[in-house]
Design a protein around this nucleic acid. Structure first.
Lengths: 211, 211
DNA sequence: CAAAAGCGACCGACCTGTCAGTCGCTTTTA
DNA sequence: TAAAAGCGACTGACAGGTCGGTCGCTTTTG
């Protein structure tokens, strides 16, 4: 029984891996279930044994990818204690992960729009999820008096949107070469927007810059 | 001959209007040329007489919409003299225009991604166009010493991305009810990001707000 | 051997782009 | 000015092709 489960799970995962590759290369609409079957070294029937349809594959893929990404985010956040540093770490790991996994980035930032109306609601949920993470730590920072009391939901949305645009531009044009280079110049702009003059790279909480 | 030309132009425009409606309602991929023909009260053949194909209709639509939007932007910019006020005016008119024309917003911010790879390059050109407008006025502001010397291209991209996320969220969820309500809280965040403490609503350059 | 898993030919729905032909306005002709 | 000829604009049936999903059959598993 465990063997069966493992086997089934392994196949399930292999189909998702294949789907990610195919979707990232051809886009959702231009990918056929046959493509996915081929890429996963199975057959169309096999795919339909594990998933009820093409949409379901895409949704499952988004769910899996989002939960993995969120896990990473939570992991690096746990290593920081100051709220601002946590928000910064969350931001940084998202940028880094997408930089290392273009296919993932394509899926979330581009293909999800073209996959049809049905996915838009889900996509927005994911946006809200990440905005929520940022927001929560900004709230903490406000409570700690490290940054000014701003509309943290809006600020989170702005940060997310900024990242989104930068990564999307990078995905579609390849510029800047190493995506993470953006972060150094991005950081002061974002933090200034919430009134944190310029936090030190790590650890210690706010040092007011006003003389 | 003149009659025919007017007639042809009128038809051309009517097809574009219809296409905007249809694309906004059903998305690019789920819209058929027959849909557009029906909505524009012509026939499929008629559509193909004026445009070489579905793609071309979408591209023409983007071009027309972008140039109209840019015209509006330039118009309001011309009414301001201070660079910061101009950047602000540009931002505001884009927000306002999209708020008033959901279909247009859908086209640029959502459907363009799903319309296929061929459109991505063009879409990025449009992004760059608007980012360029913002950037230019931020450059002026830096030159005038009104804001701090920041990476204005990145700042423009951040502003654009922030707007993008806010409008997209509004498009897909309907929140906040009146989109323009966001602007009041958005403004200070964006301007603080480039080191302009908090410019007064109109005209005069930076007045320090610190008590 | 029975059930689970996998296979791939096939079906039906749909959609883009084509094309031979029609219609109505304009220009030419007498 | 009235008929004839010409032409751009338009029509809709149809060809050609794609693709999601199905189903009967085979292989694997325990």
């Amino acid at each position: 029984m465990k063997f069966e489960q493992n086997r089934a799970e392994e196949r399930h995962g292999r189909i998702l891996d294949a789907a990610l590759k195919v979707f990232a290369r051809k886009g959702y609409r231009d990918s056929s279930v046959d493509d996915i079957a081929g890429q996963s070294a199975t057959s169309k029937g096999g795919v339909y044994f594990h998933f009820p349809g093409k949409q379901a594959i895409f949704l499952a893929l988004m769910d899996r990818a989002a939960s993995r990404l969120l896990d990473r985010v939570e992991a690096v956040i746990a290593q920081e204690s100051a709220p601002v540093a946590r928000a910064e770490a969350a931001l940084h790991v998202v940028l880094r992960t997408f930089a290392r996994h273009r296919a993932l980035a394509r899926l979330f930032l581009i293909e999800a729009y073209g996959a049809g109306r049905e996915f838009h609601a889900r996509l927005m949920e994911f946006h809200e999820l990440f905005i929520g993470v940022i927001r929560r730590h900004l709230d903490d920072a406000v409570a700690a008096g490290v940054i000014e009391p701003v509309d943290t939901e809006l600020a989170g949305r702005i940060w997310f949107g900024a990242l989104n645009e930068i990564i999307t531009y990078w995905l579609l044009t390849g510029r800047p070469g190493p995506l993470e280079d953006s972060y150094a110049s991005l950081r002061p702009l974002l933090f200034r927007s919430v009134g944190a003059d310029m936090p030190p790279p790590r650890g210690a909480a706010g040092a007011k810059g006003t003389p």
